[in-house]
Amino acid sequence: MGAVQLGSRGEWLRLTPDGPPQYVTAELRCDGIAASQRIVHNHASGFEDLADFFGQLADDWRGWGSERVWESVEGDLRIEARHEYQHVQLRIILRSQGPGWGNEGWMVAADLTIDPGEELTRAASDLRVLALGTGSDDDPA
């Protein structure tokens, strides 16, 4: 599986498998912002929880009432979803946490709008394929 891209050509979040199966690189490009961070999956479920999150958004494409949130196990990628004005609005928060308690980390946030129909369905499907390719390790060690 190659990269999964959410958003348009100019403003997007791209998730690309990176090295061992438990990692993806998240690249965020939006309105002059360019940031990337290596994301590790939840060892119990891989990225299935992210695929499930987008699957539920796609199932509820007609709308939902409150904000929905998915966050990576280490908190370095957070996706907040709202259904407003007949579109799905995603706030993407990408962060890098430094090794200590000082000012060693960074955080960027950007808003993307996607269509609740075909675009959201395709994203959910692509994320399901990504989740299958980045599943949890079978090695118990």
Rank of each mutant, 00 (worst) to 15 (best):
Leu6Ser: 02
Gly117Glu: 09
Glu67Gln: 07
Arg29Phe: 10
Thr25Ala: 07
Asp59Lys: 02
Arg14Pro: 04
Glu67Ile: 08
Thr121Ser: 11
Val129Leu: 03
Pro140Thr: 07
Gly100Lys: 11
Val129His: 01
Gly7Asp: 08
Pro17Ile: 02
Gln56Glu: 10
Thr16Ile: 03
Phe54Met: 05
Leu13Phe: 13
Leu127Cys: 01
Asp76Lys: 04
Arg91Leu: 14
Asp31Thr: 13
Gly7Thr: 06
Gly2Phe: 00
Leu130Pro: 06
Gly19Cys: 05
Thr16Asp: 07
Gln37Arg: 15
Leu112Asn: 06
Trp106Ala: 13
Gln22Pro: 06
Arg29Ala: 13
Ala44Tyr: 11
Arg82Leu: 15
Leu120Glu: 00
Ala26Thr: 05
Pro140Asp: 09
Arg68Pro: 05
Pro17Met: 04
Thr25Pro: 00
Asp60Thr: 05
Gly2Cys: 02
Tyr23Ala: 03
Ser8Leu: 07
Arg82Cys: 08
Asp59Tyr: 03
Ala124Gly: 04
Ala26Asn: 07
Ala34Trp: 10
Ala58Met: 01
Asp59Leu: 00
Leu6His: 03
Asp137Trp: 09
Ala35Leu: 09
Gln89Ser: 15
Gly55Asn: 06
Ser72His: 08
Glu118Ser: 12
Glu74Gln: 10
Ala123Trp: 00
Leu94Arg: 04
Gln22Phe: 09
Glu27His: 09
Asp76Cys: 08
Asp126Trp: 00
Arg95His: 05
Leu90Ile: 10
Arg91Ala: 13
Arg122Met: 02
Phe54Tyr: 11
Arg14Thr: 03
Pro99Lys: 13
Ala26Ile: 01
Leu120Ser: 04
Gly105Glu: 07
Ile33Met: 14
Asp76Met: 04
Arg91Pro: 04
Ser45Glu: 11
Ala141Gly: 08
Pro140His: 04
Ala141Phe: 11
Gln97Asp: 13
Ile114Phe: 02
Val4His: 00
Leu6Thr: 03
Glu27Asp: 13
Glu48Val: 07
Trp64Pro: 05
Asp138Pro: 10
Gly2Val: 00
Trp106Gly: 12
Ile79Trp: 04
Leu120Trp: 00
Asn42Val: 08
